[in-house]
Simulated scan of single mutants.
Amino acid sequence: MWKTSIVAMLLGASLLAHAQQRPAQQVVQWQLQVVKDGQQIDSFDGTTTVGQARTDTHHQVVQHDVGCKDQPAGSIDLSRTITVSPLRVDPEGVMFSIDTQQTLEDDNARRTDIGCKLPPQPRQVSASHPGLVVPPDQWASWTLVDHDPSLVYRVHANVVSNGANGNGTNGGTSGNDTATGSSNSN
């Protein structure tokens, strides 16, 4: 019996020593705002463990009146997918890798030769930021497109205190359209 107790005690001490040697995984709570021409149009948020990635997609289906009789026509799904990954936490803040793919539509109303409305043309855009640093208690901005329209991602982050598991949920609201660094018209 005493042998079993000694074995259990040694095993427990070994497990405790092993657990103390592994650094605790840091968990980051973040918020990303999508700003078009100075106005917030969408937001994402989540809780993610450093070294993990979180992907979320928002959809907004829009329909326009087209033709000479202003009749509703085909709809366009303006989707926005982001992948956010906290890479490290240090005194300068949290460093993120952010990837985005989006569908947006042209803001310029087009017309036929006789003046009938045409639907806006959708285009696919995508961009990556390999290391956006978000200082503690501040917002960091990433300008994706300078003008026509201007598009900026604003990111805020906090390190979550012990006890979080990093499996938080993402939330946010769908917005209009947005764009990123490069653009490929369809």
Score class of each variant (00 low, 15 high):
8 A>G: 11
42 D>G: 06
12 G>Y: 02
137 D>Y: 06
81 T>N: 05
50 V>M: 11
67 G>Q: 09
80 R>V: 10
62 V>T: 08
89 V>L: 04
99 D>T: 07
27 V>P: 01
48 T>N: 06
107 D>Y: 03
48 T>H: 10
181 G>A: 00
91 P>I: 03
48 T>G: 13
116 C>K: 08
5 S>P: 04
104 L>N: 05
142 W>Y: 05
11 L>Y: 00
98 I>F: 00
179 A>F: 07
130 P>Q: 10
139 W>Q: 15
150 S>C: 01
24 A>N: 04
87 L>E: 14
88 R>M: 15
6 I>N: 06
171 G>D: 02
30 W>Q: 07
128 S>Q: 14
186 N>F: 12
14 S>E: 00
57 T>Q: 10
144 L>H: 06
160 V>M: 11
173 T>H: 12
110 R>T: 04
122 P>Y: 02
160 V>K: 08
85 S>R: 15
173 T>P: 04
165 N>S: 02
118 L>R: 02
152 V>Y: 09
61 V>A: 10
149 P>I: 15
186 N>S: 14
103 T>Y: 05
67 G>K: 09
123 R>V: 09
13 A>H: 02
9 M>A: 15
11 L>F: 10
67 G>I: 13
58 H>N: 07
148 D>I: 15
102 Q>V: 14
178 T>N: 02
44 F>H: 15
45 D>F: 12
184 N>G: 14
143 T>N: 08
74 G>L: 09
148 D>V: 13
17 A>T: 08
112 T>F: 09
91 P>G: 13
18 H>I: 09
15 L>G: 08
173 T>L: 14
110 R>P: 02
170 N>S: 15
98 I>P: 04
84 V>Y: 00
139 W>F: 11
71 Q>W: 01
118 L>G: 06
182 S>N: 13
138 Q>V: 05
26 Q>G: 02
46 G>K: 06
141 S>G: 14
111 R>K: 03
83 T>W: 01
31 Q>N: 03
142 W>I: 04
181 G>T: 11
38 G>M: 10
56 D>L: 15
36 K>E: 09
17 A>V: 15
151 L>A: 14
174 S>D: 12
176 N>L: 15
143 T>C: 06
44 F>I: 12
72 P>H: 13
92 E>I: 01
11 L>I: 09
118 L>F: 03
3 K>T: 13
166 G>L: 03
154 R>P: 04
120 P>T: 04
